[in-house]
Amino acid sequence: MHPAYSVILFTTASGAGYGLLVWLVLGGLLELVPIERGLGVLGFGLAFGLITAGLLSSTAHLGRPERAWRAFSQWRTSWLSREGVLAVATYVPAGITALGWVVLETIDGLLAVTAVLSVLGALVTIYTTGMIYASLRTIRQWHQPLTAPIYVVLGLASGAVLLDVLLRVLDIGDVWVDWLAGAALIIGAGLKWAYWMRIDGEPRDYTAEAALGLGHLGKVRPLEPPHTQPNFVMREMGYRVARKHALKLRKLALLLGFGVPLGLLLLTSAAGWVPAVGGALLAALAMAVGFVVERWLFFAEAEHVSMLYYGAEAA
């Protein structure tokens, strides 16, 4: 599948934003972080910034972005529509919680309800993003039980790393957030590893013979292409990264996305302000690059069944 940069930015940025929202609000509810203005402005500002940038970026993938509002209507059948509805709906409780946190410096009473709703909204929104892909039976590498959980865990891991950055910048960091980020990164890397093992090990069930319904006549070979230049189907569905490049990029994604941030966060956990902030910022930067590579690979390694009509032997 063609890796569109708008969609890569959308899924990684909004995932990190929702992840940060989850940990920030949960931290406040559990009294693990102080409900004070500075953290509120930085935390909600960064979370809303990332979520909004991601959602706006996703509209760049549309042929008719001015009609994007229509996507809120078909939530009964469409995961893309559900994602849109939940993404926008989550702004309401999250916005109220943010106002209470920043203006009143409290999330007690009714604000606790909106706080819980914003955590749930954020989690379910990341899940629906994953389900847009996981629900497509035409793409074996996406139609996997691990696809949506990986979207959630990677969103939560990137959110935890960002919260760690903020707490260290404000010098209110505690070791629990290092362990939280570390655990999320380890679980994320483990799930991603299991996912790659699974898509590599699975049989490719669909063949060109089956796609044409001509298996009883023998092996099928393309003879005359229907067009001289690639059409939309080939440009969109036919994109595929070379196997040896994919393996290198997987290693790079694991190293930058998980290994480097994990090491940096734990190494600088008990350090002074300058190395602690520097370490966390570097960790966030490495993770951002690693997660973008991971998301790029998610598309580039995906094989679409329709390519069986265009010379692919199996999918």
Partner: peptide, 26 residues
């Protein structure tokens, strides 16, 4: 008139039957 050109339908079709119109955006 209401298609937003998100291309998801073309991803869902195993037959490669839908083609996005790059000029028309739908």
């Amino acid at each position: 008139d209401t298609c937003i050109g998100c291309k998801l339908c073309s991803w869902a079709c195993p037959y490669g039957a839908r083609e996005y119109d790059y000029g028309h955006g739908v």
